[in-house]
């Protein structure tokens, strides 16, 4: 009996393996054909490529099931590969053999507005000044990730502490903090950032500071609500009864509990801040040219450049899209794991 079952299992696995492999190959073929064929209109090409991508995706999931015997969250895995890869590349950017990203004087001999061609010196093409798009995108990732991570860290630490204090002390402290958070929330974020940019230099540090202002109010609210919920549990009273003072109760009893939902919220916020940073740079209020960020790279497509050379906008746009998408997936996972209540909302 067991051997029969095993055999049945094995044939099933082989079938999945073959099917998965076939889907992968067909999908890849469709993608390549859709990408390179000169005979079809753009819409048809796009349909072919997207269909190919879907087939490849399904093929890989099947292959994984057949080989490992259990399902994995392929989308999440791919997102994590993207994020980890991007972070590593961004960290090591100065050491990598990349093209020039901001010094126009060195690119006088490079082709300008070159379309993406893999297997050349400029796999993702160049911009109107001959600067390498891949290098610029990776250096843009450095600034984008740095600014948003810094802003989220400031927001989490400051907002989280204020929230715990408000939630634990309640009364006057809570009302004063409540008025401030509501006041900050009442100002439209983009207008607040534009107002700030009138007197802050657009440096990396100032950008992080300005963007952290956007995260603080929601962090305060989240930390406050969770603190109130946990402060009513008896373990807080038990800690007080063992002689813990108020700061010890907050630091030792409440913060370790509140940090989980706050942390998962922080991951979601990273993606929002990447978008916010990109919007500011797009408007010319963020990091200035020639230093690249995804936002000011997209802005290079203004004034007709996008119609002639779509890659000028599509390349940084794709980086932005994939990164934000991946951070959102990560945030969703984090909330499912650590903050079950808001994940259900």
């Amino acid at each position: 009996m067991p051997s029969d079952k095993f055999r049945a299992d094995k044939t099933k696995r082989t079938r999945t393996l073959v099917l998965g492999g076939a889907m992968l190959v067909v999908g890849l073929a469709l993608m390549v054909f859709g990408w390179s064929t000169p005979t079809l209109v753009l819409a048809a090409k796009a349909v072919l490529v997207l269909g190919g991508v879907a087939l490849v995706f399904q093929g890989i999931s099947r292959l994984v099931v057949a080989i490992r015997g259990k399902r994995i969250d392929l989308l999440f895995t791919l997102a994590m590969i993207w994020l980890v890869g991007l972070c590593i590349v961004a960290l090591l950017a100065p050491l990598l053999p990349l093209g020039e990203h901001n010094d126009v004087a060195k690119t006088l001999l490079e082709p300008t507005n070159m379309s993406p061609k893999l297997l050349t010196d400029h796999p993702l093409g160049t911009n109107n000044q001959g600067l390498d798009m891949l290098s610029r995108s990776i250096h843009g990732a450095r600034t984008s990730l740095m600014i948003s991570l810094l802003a989220v860290s400031i927001g989490t630490v400051v907002g989280g502490s204020i929230g715990v204090i408000a939630g634990y002390f309640r009364k006057g402290t809570d009302s004063v903090i409540g008025i401030f958070t509501n006041a900050v929330l009442a100002v439209p974020p983009l207008i607040l950032l534009i107002a700030l940019s009138t007197f802050l230099d657009p440096s990396l540090r100032n950008m992080a500071f300005a963007l952290s202002l956007l995260t603080i109010p929601s962090m305060v609210r989240l930390a406050r609500a969770n603190t109130i919920a946990f402060a009513q549990r008896e373990f807080v009273m038990a800690a007080r009864l063992m002689g813990a003072n108020r700061f010890r109760v907050m630091a030792r009893e409440l913060v370790p509990n509140v940090i989980l939902p706050v942390f998962s919220m922080a991951v979601v916020m990273i993606s929002a801040l990447i978008v916010a940073e990109a919007s500011l740079s797009f408007l010319g209020l963020g990091i200035q040219q020639p230093d690249p960020t995804w936002g000011n790279m997209v802005a290079e497509g203004e004034g007709g450049a996008m119609e002639d050379y779509p890659h000028i906008v599509l390349v940084p746009g794709a980086f932005l899209f994939l990164t934000v998408f991946a951070f959102n997936l990560l945030g969703e996972k984090a909330q499912q794991r650590w903050d079950t209540r808001s994940a259900k909302l």
């Binding site: 549990r233 009864l241 002689g243 009893e253």
Partner: peptide, 27 residues
């Protein structure tokens, strides 16, 4: 209040109703 805290523990202690909530889940 701080003198009272000195009392709690060595002089008087309390056992609560619900052991589910009287222990900190992350400690």
């Amino acid at each position: 209040p701080n003198q009272r805290r000195q009392l709690w523990g060595p002089e008087v202690a309390m056992v609560f109703q619900d052991p589910m909530t009287s222990l900190n889940p992350v400690k």
